[in-house]
Amino acid sequence: MIKHLKPGVILFVLLSVLTGVIYPAIVTGLAQFLFSSQANGSLMTDSNGKTTGSSLIGQPFSSSGHFWGRPSATAPFSYNAGASSGSNLGPTNPALVDAVKARIQALKIADPDNKAPVPVDLVTASGSGLDPQISPAAADYQINRVAKTRNIRPEILRALVDANTESRQWGFLGEPRVNVLKLNLAMDQLSR
């Protein structure tokens, strides 16, 4: 019996070391060498060098002087990366309809002079509930509110939105998008 058990134990130990130590060490080393920023969470810092968040995870911005991202469907706290998920509410679910109506009302209260249609990504959560980007239309919708609050000309903010708009990946995948954290950090730099 020992004769049959010994090769199994040796194979178990070898494979454990290979797949549990050597392979992860190689992959981690390559990631750190080739993609250091991404391997460390794509962290963003402000002008003082303070880490403010990740460019890959939506952040809660509620000040009228900042651009707002997509609503978060995570619970119990908004933008809780540990609870990433969608709301799982269908388009005819009364709870979703009520939530969207409340979000539209909140946007109208925050900027009563804005008569433009509210972009859908400002009132609906994404599948993960943590999207860091909004559409250029959603950023444009917020320009006048942010400009009034910060006492900045809207044209300056529009140029900042344009400068922070990412095009389609490889020219054909996805849609143009604006990373809300990057935009707000660039705007904070502008205000200094």
Rank of each mutant, 00 (worst) to 15 (best):
L185S: 11
N144K: 07
M187W: 03
D162K: 12
E175K: 09
G174N: 07
L173K: 01
T149Y: 06
L183E: 12
G174V: 04
D162I: 00
T165L: 02
A186K: 07
T149V: 11
A147H: 03
N151G: 06
S167T: 12
F172C: 06
E155D: 15
N151H: 12
W170F: 14
R145G: 14
A159M: 07
T165H: 07
R158E: 15
V146Y: 06
A138D: 06
R150Q: 15
R158M: 12
R153G: 14
E175I: 01
I143P: 15
A186E: 12
P154I: 00
I152Q: 11
N144P: 05
F172E: 02
W170G: 00
F172W: 09
T149Q: 12
L183I: 11
V180G: 13
N151Q: 14
P154F: 01
R153L: 11
D162R: 04
M187N: 10
F172H: 09
P176S: 03
R168S: 11
R158I: 09
A138T: 03
L160H: 11
A163G: 06
Y141C: 06
G171Q: 01
I143R: 08
A163V: 01
R153N: 15
P176Y: 01
E166R: 02
D162P: 05
K182Y: 00
T149I: 01
L157P: 15
V180D: 12
D162S: 14
